[in-house]
């Protein structure tokens, strides 16, 4: 059995509203390297969580900031 170990990337964003989320959901849904993602909009940091085995944090940051939002990786 081959187990692919996915990494979980965690970012602090300002994607606060449903309308904000709609702006970025298309490109995350259709991103080949992104297996799963969600944003905890109940949290003060609007934490974006991405599961992928190949995407880099920088790629996600540039994708989100290109839509006009803030995005920084949480350590």
């Amino acid at each position: 059995m081959i187990t692919v170990i996915n990494q979980i990337l965690i970012f602090k964003t300002n994607i606060q509203t449903l309308a904000d989320k709609e702006q970025i959901q298309h490109c995350l849904n259709n991103h080949d390297a992104v297996d799963q993602w969600n944003i905890d909009q109940q949290d003060i940091d609007c934490v974006l969580r991405v599961i992928s085995n190949s995407v880099t944090p920088e790629q996600i940051i540039s994708l989100i900031t290109n839509h006009g939002f803030e995005c920084a990786e949480l350590e």
């Binding site: 979980i8 965690i10 602090k12 969600n38 944003i39 905890d40 109940q42 949290d43 940091d45 934490v47 969580r49 949480l74 350590e75």
Partner: peptide
């Protein structure tokens, strides 16, 4: 860290 918690849980719910 916040990141650690989010590795285990998707969100508050």
């Amino acid at each position: 860290s916040v990141a650690t918690l989010y590795i285990y849980y998707k969100d508050k719910d």
